[in-house]
């Protein structure tokens, strides 16, 4: 339905379940993709699966210098970065009273600060091109909160406020900045939950099931498309009705 032929996309966290499916969806729509992540092997595997128009750029998002370099490397291998998907994220859950500064800081650094740096790094090219799409993968917990995830929820809510501010600044340059907030999505992370935990979660989801990472990828594909040019500063919640906001 959406055609991204000739467009280039940088996707962080592409070695993960959601990131991998985002890369597949954008690639299937015709985009050239740069797959970023910390672990090279799964990225190479995905690149091999995609075939042509796929590049691997490993990057540790807690390393500021490496993050600054990433948009430049992506522009070198692809010629430009038209679409940026900030999908990478980490969790370091702990009760608020026990939360260590290091747990707070590392989650904020990777989830929020690296997102800011990558956005900043791709803006020059997008402004010149008068076309750009930035899609930040937030989370339902950024809007609702979640016990044990004070750091993660703060970082994901921060991404929303940052996206809106940036969206204001660059809207008249043909650049849109949006967030996608997944609810509970079946991934390697949620596979670790036991049946009792899963059942408890499902009672909270009107759709009665966990989401599929392809359903997040479809939301990203829409926001990346030319057709979504008039959608900016918004958060697209994809959560099976778990939070209707």
């Amino acid at each position: 339905m959406f055609d991204l032929t000739g467009k280039t996309a940088l996707i962080t966290g592409a070695s993960g379940g959601i990131g991998g499916d985002i890369a597949r969806a954008l690639h299937a729509a015709g985009a050239t993709v740069a797959l970023s992540g910390t672990r090279e092997a799964p990225l190479q595997e995905l690149a091999a699966e995609l075939g042509e128009r796929a590049h691997v750029l490993t990057c540790n998002l807690s390393d500021a210098t490496a993050v600054e370099a990433l948009p430049k490397q992506a522009a070198e291998v692809m010629g430009s970065v038209d679409i940026l998907v900030n999908n990478a994220g980490i969790t370091k859950d702990n009760l608020f009273m026990r939360m260590k500064d290091e747990e707070w800081q590392s989650v904020l650094d990777v989830n929020l600060t690296s997102t800011m740096r990558l956005c900043r790094g791709v803006l020059r090219g997008m402004m010149k091109a008068r076309w750009g799409r930035i899609i930040n993968i937030s989370s339902i917990v950024g809007a609702t909160g979640n016990p044990g995830q004070g750091n993660y929820a703060a970082s994901k809510a921060g991404m929303v406020g940052m996206s809106k501010s940036l969206a204001y600044e660059v809207a008249n340059r043909g650049i849109t900045v949006n967030a996608v907030a997944p609810g509970f999505i079946a991934t390697a992370m949620t596979d670790k939950l036991n049946d009792t935990q899963k059942d408890a979660i499902l009672t909270q989801i009107p759709a009665g099931r966990m989401g599929d990472s392809k359903e997040i990828a479809a939301a990203v594909l829409y926001l990346a498309s030319t057709e979504a040019a008039y959608v900016t500063g918004t958060t697209l919640h994809v959560n099976g009705g778990m939070a209707m906001i």
Binding site: R124, M127, K128, E169, V170, R173
Partner: peptide
């Protein structure tokens, strides 16, 4: 203000 950034670029 964004125009001035673009001019500098």
């Amino acid at each position: 203000s964004l125009d001035t950034v673009e001019l500098v670029m």
